[in-house]
Amino acid sequence: MTDEPLLRVSALSKFYGSRVGCENISFDLWPGEMLAVVGESGSGKTTLLNCLSTRLLPSSGTASYRMRDGQWRELYRMSEAERRFLMRTDWGFVHQNPADGLRMTVSAGANVGERLMAVGDRHYGRIRATAVDWLSRVEIDEDRIDDEPRAFSGGMRQRLQIARNLVTGPRLVFMDEPTGGLDVSVQARLLDLLRGLVTDLGLAAIVVTHDLAVARLLSQRMMVMKDGRVVESGLTDRVLDDPRAPYTQLLVSSILQV
């Protein structure tokens, strides 16, 4: 384990006119660490995620990323070409709706293989073998490799999206409500799968969720957001077992017990 963070975020703010998207967010993320960002809809957690993943430019603040060669680069000063390259090699983005992250009209195998082809792999047999391997890692039968994701269930689509993102061995994955809209049993399977993959691959991840159970299961650290600001942050179990901020107490007390 290295002693240097992977991502350093400092005083990041995003305003939509006079409205606050997110304000003055600072944190470090280390390799292999899962950070959950929780809060209700409109709390700014998705704005934050979009800024961090450079899908959105912040109004102020900086975010630096440690590249594979050890060099620190400021995300918002990189050229678009560099950012897009980062996006499809060293990063992943798992959307809540798999249709946003998949090509629905090309086969599962091509969905997984696209990133490989994008970084220059030109050997069909090798690309396909990698796709088969990744499909099995996300528990999709090999014989579905030539089916389009349109023919997949919601849970399968989400697992395919994860495989598509992880195939290039990224070091940082952004997830926006990865289990939203899935049945509870499907959710459990996906969470377990994600946990296993993240541990095996040593990924760092930032997971936006409104579901505290998802946060507890996936993350070691969490930030609680309200009205665009971080109201509490710390170890996930500390925040959930000993919530200090009024809003966090409200959130925790609102969890339905099974």
Binding site: G113, E114, A118, R122, Y124, I127
Partner: peptide, 11 residues
Amino acid sequence: EYGLMHVKLYE
């Protein structure tokens, strides 16, 4: 970024 072109040939 021409990876997508090969996606078509892959298909």
